Structure formats: C-alpha cells, structure tokens
Simulated scan of single mutants.
Amino acid sequence: MENAFEHNHFMQEIGYEPKGENGITGQRFFQKGGDNRTHHVHIFQVGSNEIERHLAFRDYLREHPKAVQETTKQLSTPYDYANGYISLTRLQLAHFYDRFS
C-alpha cells in the first residue's frame, strides 16, 4: 500500500489531491474539486474487507435514492464540510453495516 504514496504525483497531475488514509486505516483517498468536490477515488490493498463494504454501500445508495436525498439534505446544513462529511459518512456506514452485516 505504501506504493500508492509513491505515485501521488500521477493523481496530482490529473487534478486529484492526496488525502492519505482520510479516516479509514489502510485506504488511500484522493479528491478532486476542493471544497466543491466533483470526484473521489479510494484505493485499498487487494483483498481488503473495505472494498466489499464500500461497494455494498454504493450499491445500497444506488438502490435507495431517498437515502441519497437525505444525505444531501444533511450535508447542505452549515458546518465544517470536511469534518462534517467524514463524520456523517462514518455514521451512515456504521448504520448500514449494522443493518446489513
């Protein structure tokens, strides 16, 4: 996984900002668009349990558009976007995993 850090410059060349683990041990996270994020990329070690968890959450959100609307509504309230987004996402993921694991 350390190799991901060695290649940060490739992601930076195409407009992504390296964010390190960004709160998830073993992940490498990249974001594009600053505070008005347009894209993000998660990189995990092959075989990481986090891959299945993230894909399951993505699939759940695709199948439950009301959950996306509620998330968007919660994120539109004024607060520190970066910390608030991370906290909200962690709470949602915890709730999702408790329900569906």
Rank of each mutant, 00 (worst) to 15 (best):
G26C: 08
G33V: 08
N83K: 15
D59F: 13
D35Y: 07
Q12Y: 05
K66N: 05
I43H: 07
E21P: 01
L93E: 02
Y97I: 09
Y81F: 13
G23N: 06
T89I: 13
F30S: 01
H42P: 01
I43C: 07
K19L: 15
A56R: 14
N83D: 11
L91E: 07
M1G: 09
R37Y: 07
T72N: 14
K32S: 04
E6L: 04
H40D: 03
Y97G: 01
Q31S: 15
E17D: 04
F96G: 00
V68S: 08
S48W: 04
T89P: 03
A4K: 02
H9N: 06
Y79A: 05
S48R: 06
A94F: 06
S87F: 12
Q12I: 03
V41K: 00
P18N: 07
P78E: 07
T71P: 02
Q12W: 03
H64T: 04
V68M: 09
S76Y: 10
F10C: 04
R53H: 01
A56K: 13
E6W: 01
R28W: 11
K73V: 10
E21C: 02
I14M: 14
T89A: 12
S87I: 10
I14Y: 13
Y60K: 06
L93M: 06
R28F: 09
N22P: 05
Y60C: 02
Q27L: 02
N8C: 09
K19N: 08
E13D: 15
I14E: 08
E21I: 01
F57S: 03
E63L: 12
G47P: 08
Q74N: 11
N36K: 14
T72A: 13
G15R: 08
F96R: 01
I24N: 02
H9M: 03
S48D: 09
G84A: 03
Y79D: 04
G26R: 10
Q92Y: 10
T89L: 14
E70M: 15
P18R: 06
I24G: 00
L93A: 01
A67L: 03
G47K: 15
S87P: 02
A82L: 09
G84H: 03
